[in-house]
Simulated assay, not measured.
Amino acid sequence: MTTEAPEIKIVDSYRIACDGGEGALGHPRVWLLIPQTEGFVECPYCDAKYIHRDFEGKV
């Protein structure tokens, strides 16, 4: 049995919302703030990793 890697999304904003993306099967919407020093944040529910476009390929 294999575990799928968390989803990685490239975004243009430092403040983003994540709801799991599966409608009723997702999770509660949470607002996440990408630290401008790190360039990414991970959703505490679904482990999706959001990378700001300025940091693409650097993290």
Rank of each mutant, 00 (worst) to 15 (best):
K58H: 03
A17I: 12
R15V: 13
Q36L: 06
R53N: 01
P28C: 06
E4S: 14
V41W: 07
H52A: 09
P44E: 11
G26E: 03
C18E: 04
D19Y: 04
R15H: 12
L33I: 05
G26A: 10
T2E: 12
I16C: 07
V41L: 09
G23S: 11
L33V: 08
H27G: 00
R15K: 14
H52D: 10
S13C: 10
P28Y: 08
I10V: 13
L32P: 05
E42T: 09
S13W: 08
E7H: 11
F40Q: 11
E4P: 08
D47N: 15
E4T: 11
F55V: 10
C46Q: 01
V59R: 10
I34H: 15
A17W: 09
A24V: 06
D19W: 02
A17V: 10
I34D: 12
T3C: 10
R15G: 02
I8V: 14
Y45M: 00
T3H: 14
V41A: 08
A24S: 09
V41G: 05
R53E: 02
G39A: 10
F55Q: 09
Q36P: 01
A48P: 00
K49S: 06
C43L: 03
Y45V: 00
V11F: 12
W31H: 08
A24D: 13
S13R: 14
Y14C: 05
F40R: 12
R53L: 05
A48Q: 09
E4M: 11
C46A: 03
I34T: 12
I10W: 08
W31R: 07
L32G: 06
E4C: 11
P6A: 14
D12W: 01
V59C: 07
C18P: 02
G23A: 10
G57Y: 07
F40D: 06
V41T: 10
G39D: 04
E42Y: 09
G20K: 06
W31P: 00
G26W: 02
I51Y: 01
E56G: 02
Y45I: 00
G21R: 01
I10Y: 15
G20F: 11
I10Q: 13
V59L: 08
D47K: 15
I16L: 13
Y45T: 00
E56R: 13
C43T: 02
A24P: 10
T3A: 15
D19K: 04
K58D: 02
E22M: 13
D19M: 03
G39N: 09
W31S: 05
C18L: 04
H27Q: 03
L32T: 02
L25I: 03
C43E: 01
D47M: 15
C43S: 07
F40I: 06
V59I: 11
C43P: 02
P28L: 02
K9L: 14
R53C: 01
L25P: 03
G20S: 10
A48L: 09
R29A: 05
P35Y: 15
E38V: 06
E42R: 13
A17M: 11
E22Q: 13
D12A: 13
R15Y: 07
P35F: 14
K9D: 02
P44W: 12
D54H: 05
M1N: 10
T2K: 14
L33D: 10
M1C: 09
H27M: 04
G20I: 11
T3S: 15
I34M: 15
E56F: 03
R53M: 00
T3L: 15
V30M: 06
P44F: 12
E22R: 14
R53V: 07
E42G: 07
